[in-house]
């Protein structure tokens, strides 16, 4: 099952931990909130994703199937 990383923007309080633990897919915006790359997670980054999820002090990160029907994600950076 292909999954992607999501952040709950209501729970997230910009602790910034996730950006350090998973720099491959998370960068911080100018206000310290994470911008999460929402392409499917490849096997080689799954371990870093897991670490970010476990260590987020707000439990604001989760993974969901890329075809989750109720999801609303960030528009592609291409558009």
């Amino acid at each position: 099952m292909r999954v992607r990383l999501r952040v709950d923007p209501i729970k997230c309080k910009a602790h910034g931990m996730c950006g350090e633990l998973f720099p491959e897919r998370i960068r911080m915006d100018d206000w310290g909130y994470p911008v999460v790359d929402q392409r499917a997670l490849s096997d080689d980054v799954l371990e870093h994703a897991r670490r970010a999820i476990v260590d987020c002090p707000r439990a604001a990160l989760w993974v969901e199937p890329v075809d989750e029907p109720g999801a609303r994600v960030r528009p592609d950076d291409s558009d």
């Binding site: 923007p9 209501i10 997230c12 915006d29 206000w31 310290g32 909130y33």
Partner: peptide, 12 residues
């Protein structure tokens, strides 16, 4: 006032 990118970003 719930999500940082909105309640910090929009006023900025």
């Amino acid at each position: 006032g719930q999500c940082g990118p909105c309640h910090v970003g929009l006023p900025a």
